[in-house]
Design a binder for these strands. Structure first.
Lengths: 88, 88, 88, 88
DNA sequence: CTGCCATTTTACCGGC
DNA sequence: GCCGGTAAAATGGCAG
């Protein structure tokens, strides 16, 4: 590698390092929040709530009502095709 | 380690190795079948079916009807508690 | 919509049923093998081995081939990363 | 049943609502950070870096501390496994 | 029966 | 805009 290549490489390497470190810092924050969420679920569980159901509720509230209805309909159609009565 | 310990250790090591290898062989078979399942889903997808729905159907057929009804009821109860209309 | 319209009884329904049944058959086989594995562990345990440690060995052996390859790849990755530097 | 009986409007409902809202708030924060990460990658890409390689670097750095420890542990595991041999 | 670990499912990102 | 593969979340199963 040429002198110039080497120098620019050094600068780029620093730049890359900087990007990587920013990302790693953010990922740490994200992991911390994920942990907080886990703790809230744990607390809810300790109060007697069913966390599996809670997770479904949270997901449902995030979904567009249309999407939800479409999926329900598809499920129903497939279930009928198989002679099943009802699908949750 | 004593001579006896060493010998019995050797035998036990062989025995252990044998167990481990039986397990690994079975796990390979299991992985192969898991792969077959993946391929069936892929084929179904290629035929125009929605694999996400199909997976739900397969899971639902595996569940006891009672369990399914109970979960549906719980979901409904939680949803009502939050003022939501309907949950899929 | 590609498969299964509002009329749920037709060739598509048969096709879906066929896929579902193939999958269920394969999942049964898979479960049977999983059960075999469980039995091998039980047998090993009856012979005095610690199954927890055995599981760790099996897992370790599964990852081991990767480990060296990954570390070699690491060098490659860093090399590429520095290779990118000439762009800057 | 510990929480939320057939009367869905009560203290339990409020409690549930409170948990759900705390979770949703945290998930928003998490999503915001995920978005920040995405933007950093985008910025890096705009500077000429290959994001795919960057992701591999980030992943590698996350695993690296483990790798050596794990390989050391492997020896320990095998040692223990052979330690079991005296039982047989 | 509770927590941990493996598997499975879902969501995301980049390429075509 | 879909599709494949990859990382995160969720579910289920197992041992203690």
């Amino acid at each position: 590698m040429s002198q110039i290549g080497h120098n620019s490489g050094g600068i780029a390497a620093d730049h890359l390092k900087s990007f990587i470190e920013r990302i790693e810092r953010l990922e740490e924050e994200k992991a911390a929040i994920a942990n907080d969420i886990k703790e809230v679920y744990a607390e809810a569980k300790g109060t007697g709530f069913d966390t599996k159901i809670m997770r479904r509720i949270v997901k449902a509230r995030k979904m567009e009502p249309n999407t939800r209805a479409e999926m329900a309909e598809l499920l129903d159609i497939y279930a009928r095709a198989l002679g099943m009565s009802d699908i949750v």
